[in-house]
């Protein structure tokens, strides 16, 4: 193994993986290129747009700003890991459809993963609070009213 490589052990959507990666590999590239999980998108590649949002060890993070080697041993949840075992949608995915919370859809996986974090952190009590908590996710189609409504729907349904 080259000195600029490392073995990374990582669990993605419940499945453990162990693979050799260049130390420069970011988590988002590892997910997309090595594991074929292309639901997580790369927008800006510099931590501004939020399209690459996934959960690591239970919190929402930006996969483009994390080197895979620094996530060693981590539990990763991506958009592919949501939904029911029989292929049904997660309730927040359904809420995005019901509320028309997307147009082109490119930012949507990141919006949904971030929205889950927003609800889980208890930051979805008012529209204003949701907007602040979701400010790390940009939507070029400006579907923001629908995104806020979808998150509010699910948060209310959970008694948040």
């Amino acid at each position: 193994m080259k000195p600029e490589s490392a073995v990374v052990s990582i669990t993605v959507n419940g499945t453990p993986h162990r693979l050799e990666a260049d130390t420069r590999r970011t988590l988002v590239d590892l997910l997309r290129e090595d594991l074929g999980l292309t639901g997580t998108k790369i927008g800006c590649g510099q931590g501004t747009c939020g399209a690459c949002t996934v959960h690591v060890d239970g919190v929402r993070v930006l996969a483009c700003l994390l080197l895979a080697v620094t996530v060693e041993g981590g539990q990763v949840l991506t958009i592919e890991g949501l939904g029911t075992p029989d292929g049904g949608l997660h309730e927040l995915q359904q809420a995005f459809i019901d509320r028309d919370a997307l147009q082109c859809g490119f930012c949507t996986p990141g919006q949904i993963m971030s929205g889950l974090g927003c609800i889980g952190e208890g930051r979805a009590n008012t529209a204003e609070e949701i907007r602040e908590s979701m400010s790390g996710n940009l939507c070029r189609c400006a579907a923001y009213p629908g995104i806020v409504a979808a998150i509010a729907d699910v948060a209310e349904g959970q008694g948040a």
Binding site: G47, R123, G136
Partner: peptide
């Protein structure tokens, strides 16, 4: 400061 995702890391 920053965004929720960045503050988590």
């Amino acid at each position: 400061a920053a965004s929720a995702q960045i503050r988590n890391v």
